[in-house]
Simulated scan of single mutants.
Amino acid sequence: MSRITLYTNPLSRGRIARWMLEEVGADYETRILTYNGTMKEPAYLAINPMGKVPAIIHDGKAVTECAAICAYLADAFPDAGLAPEPSERGDYYRWMFFGAGPLEASVTNRSLGFIVPPEKERVAGYGNFDHVMDTLDAWLSEHPYIAGHRFTAADVYVGAQINWGMQFGTFDKRESFAAYAERLAARPAFIRATRLDDEAAAAA
């Protein structure tokens, strides 16, 4: 299998992609891009016209968006066991897309100071921030991992959002979230990925 190229910045969602690459044991090279610099140059815009990171190139194919990268790598490296089993697919897809939709949208809007007016909650895909937090809290209070009882790629994507959200104050610090984040932070791949990104940030 050909080597993967990761386009990232250590102060970005690219940390999610690196964590996933470490989880699957991929052979990859890292290219650090700069905001308002190399992210906006034609060479990278040809890979991701959004001019944002992360992106990966694998077998000549570009994959962008963190949820897509996590799902793609889980399928591309089946021996890592991070793709869902047939019995897990409902929960896996439900929460992967919950993370990419209601969770990220509600957290982003709240951090920008935008609160959906109560009379407009039917229009917003997530309703309101508290409803999103309550929904995720209820699930993680009953399940050790997003897809049930074992770690999958969905935990990389959703778990990273919970971990960072609590660190930066954009996420409620609830007991279920803290316990979940602690389990994920103990994973060797998470520790390796964090060290690599911290080193890259210090060198920038």
Score class of each variant (00 low, 15 high):
M133W: 08
V123L: 15
F77S: 11
R94E: 02
N128P: 07
K173T: 15
F168T: 14
A178D: 11
G125V: 13
F129T: 09
G81L: 05
S141R: 15
Y92L: 06
A100R: 07
W164H: 10
A62L: 13
C70K: 06
H143C: 07
G148Y: 01
A67K: 06
W95C: 03
R122M: 04
E85A: 15
T170E: 08
A138K: 10
A105L: 14
C70P: 10
S176W: 00
A74E: 05
M133F: 10
V116R: 04
K120Q: 15
D130N: 05
A62R: 13
Y145Q: 01
Y72C: 03
F151E: 00
A138S: 12
F98Q: 00
P117E: 12
A178Y: 01
A179N: 10
E121M: 07
C70L: 04
A147M: 08
A124W: 13
E142Q: 14
S87R: 11
P84A: 00
R122F: 02
A74I: 01
D75Y: 04
Q167G: 14
E104G: 03
H143F: 00
D155C: 02
Y72V: 09
A160K: 00
F77V: 04
G148L: 02
F77N: 09
L140F: 07
L103G: 08
W139G: 00
D155V: 01
E121W: 00
Y92D: 07
G127A: 04
V116K: 04
G101L: 06
C70Y: 02
Y157R: 04
V132H: 06
D134R: 13
L112S: 06
T108D: 08
D130T: 06
C70N: 10
A80R: 03
S111P: 03
E142K: 14
V107Y: 10
E104T: 10
Y145K: 04
D79S: 15
E121A: 09
T64W: 03
D75L: 12
R122V: 03
C66A: 09
E85G: 04
Q167R: 14
F177C: 03
G159E: 10
L73N: 12
T152P: 03
A160Y: 11
N128V: 02
K173G: 01
Y126W: 13
D130K: 08
F114K: 11
G169S: 09
G113P: 05
E182I: 03
Y180N: 13
F98N: 02
R89L: 02
F168R: 15
A74V: 05
F114L: 12
H143R: 13
G99F: 03
K173D: 13
G159N: 09
Y93V: 02
Q161M: 15
G127F: 05
R94H: 12
L103W: 04
P118D: 11
P102M: 05
V116T: 12
L82S: 05
L136F: 05
